[in-house]
Design a protein around this nucleic acid. Structure first.
Lengths: 147, 147
DNA sequence: TATTAATTTGTAATTGTTATAATAAGTATA
DNA sequence: TATACTTATTATAACAATTACAAATTAATA
């Protein structure tokens, strides 16, 4: 599964005239196989064994390239680091307020909301973002134990 | 309408033991009457006539106080400044990708999604966030004219 | 009005991200 | 293959939003 995604992604990049460098290959592969919505720094640290000379700027540059190619989604959180997510099929994120863990969950796209919003505001809709916040099972358990 | 909100908000603060300083009063008032989801810096600039010696830190400190008291919602956007929104009733935001304008629109809370997500992931849900992105009417018009 | 704990202020520090310039690595053309 | 040309990487400096800190000030209450 991972390999198919990687191959497709590399093809997409090539077709838009982006060179496949070893760093790009590795960053892309890492994001795809990662189940954990990594930050730029996570990626940088994960690959520093393989690429001791790689710059953080390279990670950021390539994440931007991937985003612009529509391969990767950036999730921004104010002051904290952005997290990056390989785009497969539509899913949303559930975020733990206590430990920050992000869990995927699937839900059919909210086309109706987009439609209504477009109608009400006159915007031409391109996308939407939804996240649900709460406490994950393990934090929940932990907090009840502590108190 | 604004006055009622302001009075209620001040009462809420007082009841939790927060002092009402002139700066707090002014910041709160500004957010409530503002229709434009201001950044911390917007607020700072808007009030520097009234409070020439006010520090930016004061604005940030108080926005945190308001957020913790549940009076204000912070909308974060990665690198860019957070925007602050006085909480009245449930509404979502429509954001223009081109000029950054934020328009409110009302939609019944997505309780069903929260419920499903909670069921699927075992999280205890506290809130959710949804935003719709697109192009606002004036940017749309402008871009067609230019091309 | 005097007391005290909370708040403000000014500034320095922090952190995520981007700009820049020099170097390296591909790619195309003759 | 040699050459020029474009793109990518690296290292570092710069930037901007936000927060930490210590000293000075002030709101609330007895």
């Amino acid at each position: 599964m991972t390999e198919v995604h990687l191959r497709d992604a590399l093809d997409t990049l090539k077709s838009t005239g982006v060179r496949i460098t070893p760093q790009r290959h590795a960053i892309l592969e890492y994001i795809i196989q990662s189940m954990s919505h990594p930050t730029a720094d996570d990626i940088y640290k994960a690959l520093e064994g393989k690429f001791p000379n790689m710059s953080v700027a390279t990670v950021y540059n390539n994440l931007r390239v991937f985003r612009e190619a529509g391969l990767v989604k950036e999730l921004t959180y104010g002051d904290a680091s952005s997290r990056f997510d390989f785009i497969t099929n539509d899913h949303y994120h559930m975020i733990c307020n206590s430990c920050g863990r992000i869990v995927d969950f699937h839900y059919p796209g909210l086309d109706e909301v987009e439609h209504l919003a477009s109608h009400l505001t006159g915007f031409e809709v391109s996308s939407h973002r939804m996240e649900i916040y709460g406490t994950c099972p393990s934090c929940k358990e932990h907090s009840t134990k502590v108190q």
